[in-house]
Amino acid sequence: MIIQLLNGLVYGGLLVILSSGLVLIFGLRQVVNFAHGAFYTLGAYVALSVSAFVGFWGALAAAFVALSVVGIALDRFCFRPLQNRPHAVVLIITFGLFLIVTDLVQLVWGRESYSLLPPPDFTGPVDVFGTPYPVYRLVVLALAVVAAVALQAWLRLTRIGLHARAAATDIVATGIQGVNTDRVGALVVGVGCGLAGLAGAAAAPLLALTPSMGDAIIIDSFVVMVIGGLGSFGGSIVAAALLGQIQAFGAVYMPSLTTLLPFVLMAAVLVIRPTGLAGARIS
């Protein structure tokens, strides 16, 4: 019981990191980044490749930085020049990017699966209320909490965070005030994609690395984003926690239906609240 609860929290934590990135990008550019799952995968592989040289924590940072750079380029060469194009065009382009990145991962690392070991101090089990539990999973959970808190602190307490929040609401009004919205855009999309890389690297020791490792979790984070109300951090955190528990308990009690459960949850939320849990901002 406690194990499922914790597993649900860990998976929910990964979903929080991933969907926060999606929400950040969506807030600023009104685009759902369909390449986000591929960025998660890429983050895991980057961590795999550099961990031998810089250790696990360095690899975690490297994945964040590498994907941030990808995000900055994505904003500079795709989102910004296509700002006035229909969103469908940009959405399809991110789907094209998903295909490209997935294939590049296959080209560089091949199709065989790899595994990344957790950092040496966090390999064993730990005793949680009398039940042994892999300590690294708790590290992932802590990492998710830290990432979410840091993101909120950045957005709420710093000037650039203020600029980012303003630009997400009204990018023209923000620009007129002298805020360099191009730079804010690059930074926000960079951090958003960096978070995908971070999530991938953090998840790497939990499961096998394969070129399609991002496919399942990105679907769940899309579901989280929709249930949460698309542009809401709070909504997506609640939705991620909910979905994490559903997946964890479903895996034990209804294994054949786990893949349908997120959709059932989503359908239920949409029937009751078509704009999601925190959906006041849409419509």
Binding site: R165, A166, T169, D170, A173, T174, G178
Partner: peptide
């Protein structure tokens, strides 16, 4: 063009 999700003080700081 007041930014609606910012407080009055934050709107000022934006400028």
């Amino acid at each position: 063009m007041i930014v609606p999700n910012l407080t009055i003080e934050e709107n000022l700081i934006l400028g």
